[in-house]
Design a binder for these strands. Sequence first.
DNA 1: CACAGAGGTTAGTTTACACTTATGTAAGTG
DNA 2: CACTTACATAAGTGTAAACTAACCTCTGTG
Lengths: 107, 107
Amino acid sequence: MLDTTLQAIAEPRRRVILGLVLDRELSAGEIASHFDVTRPAISQHLAVLSAARLVTVRRHGARRLYRARREGLRELRAYLDQFWDERLGLLKKAAEAEEQRTQRRDA
Amino acid sequence: MLDTTLQAIAEPRRRVILGLVLDRELSAGEIASHFDVTRPAISQHLAVLSAARLVTVRRHGARRLYRARREGLRELRAYLDQFWDERLGLLKKAAEAEEQRTQRRDA
DNA sequence: CACAGAGGTTAGTTTACACTTATGTAAGTG
DNA sequence: CACTTACATAAGTGTAAACTAACCTCTGTG
């Protein structure tokens, strides 16, 4: 989840998209019109954001309306908070858990 | 900068490294010993983290000691804060500024 | 100074991903 | 019902990046 979120917002264009639909709904076409690239490219970015649950989609006639889903950034925010938190054991625990998942076998 | 930071921590192994050196200094070798991959791979990850200013390096004899630099995550934290902030104009402004940078020419 | 240990650097390979072109599908319009 | 609009999906391409193997550079020690 954290991984999915970070991968999604690591791409600059996707951050711009997120900013565009933060406080208003926009159709895929309206979003695409803000960029240089082709519409399918934006469509793919929207799919990534959607899979990461950083946006919601709503069909309205032939249109698809997108809007940012702020909840999707909660976990990342919590992760970062631990870097300032006094009791850092939580972060270490999380890091070690991830380490377990990352490497299959151990010495 | 934000981009550099996000790219750096988007890689899972680098997040684990960051967790390892969060509250203590570790040598490159000690860090590498926590992973399955070869030392050069870790060395490269450390270079990325260092370039993103997410870790500091200190030479102690033949060793290089690494430690997390929490300040490096300030900007990212500020970016995320705007998603919860009431006055969202700031984020929109940032997004538009990035958009300007992203696409060279405009209609 | 020779040699061993610690670790960064280079070159080459593989995989992931952002992109384009082409095609498919659902919803409105004459 | 033909046609257009709105958008997604598929297939193919180029490039970035994570990795390995091999080499190079320091630092400390006999």
